Simulated assay, not measured.
Amino acid sequence: MSLTFKTLGRGRRVAAGSLIAVAALGLTACQSGPDATSRPSSNAAPVTSHDQQSGDGSQSAGGKPTGAGPQSSANGRGPSASSAKETSPGGKPTGKAPSAAQSQASAMAASDRCTADQMSLRLGASDIGAGNIRYPLVFTNKGKKACSLRGYPGVSLIKRDGSAVGKPATRGGGSGGAVRLQPGQSAHVLLHTLNEGVSDTPCWDRSQLVFVYPPGSKEPMTTGSAGLRVCGGRFDVTAVEAGGLG
């Protein structure tokens, strides 16, 4: 009887020990399980806030870049590939170079332009035909260096007291190209109106002066108009052409 009792007692102790071990394992699983699933969620929180602030989810759960930036940039949520190309390795915009070159070219063109103070101006003889009247307005380079003219001048007719006659000339014909004037050389434009009686539109008063802004210039020039009068409501000017007429 005593032997049996001891055997049974030992069996109970073994069984009790097994139950304790199982319980310990179960407790360990309960403690480690929630942590294992919650850590990625807590690590994902900065990614979510980063998305909300900048629209770029290019971070891993550990906060390191995942390489998703270029993809989000392609979607317009970050620096684009084109904007990246606009900056040099030193961080300076490389796109400024063409603009600077264009500005320099524009400055050079402006310095090469014929100005009012280096030219003389005269109105040539009229050319009448088929109801139209054309007057050559001639620019001559009186300076000591070559210069260029291009485009349309601004032309108005005035009286000697400075009052305007009618409206400024409108542009007619093509814009043409640049005309290079060596010292002493001339270029011209044509002033065009209609002969009296061709149209029922009344003629303007006679003028005494032609008031001109050379192409690209803010300084005016004047010359006598020889009584030029606009009729038929038609008064236009062509772009600069090489040579002096009349």
Rank of each mutant, 00 (worst) to 15 (best):
R122K: 15
R122F: 02
R122V: 02
R122C: 00
L123M: 15
L123W: 03
L123P: 11
G124T: 07
G124D: 03
G124A: 06
G124R: 07
A125G: 11
A125K: 12
A125S: 14
A125L: 09
S126K: 08
S126E: 13
S126N: 02
S126Q: 09
S126W: 00
D127P: 01
D127E: 09
D127A: 02
D127L: 04
I128V: 14
G129I: 09
G129H: 14
G129M: 10
A130P: 08
A130N: 15
A130R: 15
A130Y: 13
G131R: 14
G131Q: 08
G131I: 12
G131T: 08
G131D: 05
N132K: 15
N132P: 01
N132D: 08
I133M: 13
I133P: 04
I133C: 03
R134D: 06
R134C: 03
R134T: 15
R134K: 14
R134Y: 11
R134P: 10
R134H: 08
P136C: 01
P136E: 01
P136F: 01
P136V: 01
P136S: 02
L137N: 03
L137F: 10
L137I: 05
V138I: 15
V138D: 08
T140K: 12
T140N: 05
N141A: 03
N141G: 05
N141F: 02
N141I: 03
N141H: 08
N141W: 08
N141V: 07
N141P: 13
K142F: 06
K142Y: 07
G143P: 13
K145R: 15
K145G: 10
K145Y: 01
K145C: 00
K145D: 09
A146F: 00
A146M: 09
A146V: 02
A146P: 08
A146K: 14
C147L: 05
C147Q: 12
S148M: 13
S148P: 03
S148F: 07
S148D: 10
L149C: 11
L149N: 07
L149G: 05
L149K: 08
R150E: 07
G151R: 09
G151E: 03
Y152K: 08
Y152F: 15
Y152P: 06
P153H: 05
P153K: 07
P153S: 04
V155S: 01
V155I: 13
S156W: 04
L157Y: 03
L157W: 02
L157I: 02
I158L: 08
I158R: 12
I158E: 05
K159T: 03
K159G: 02
D161Y: 10
D161I: 07
D161E: 04
D161R: 11
G162T: 11
S163K: 10
S163P: 03
S163F: 09
S163W: 04
S163I: 05
A164K: 12
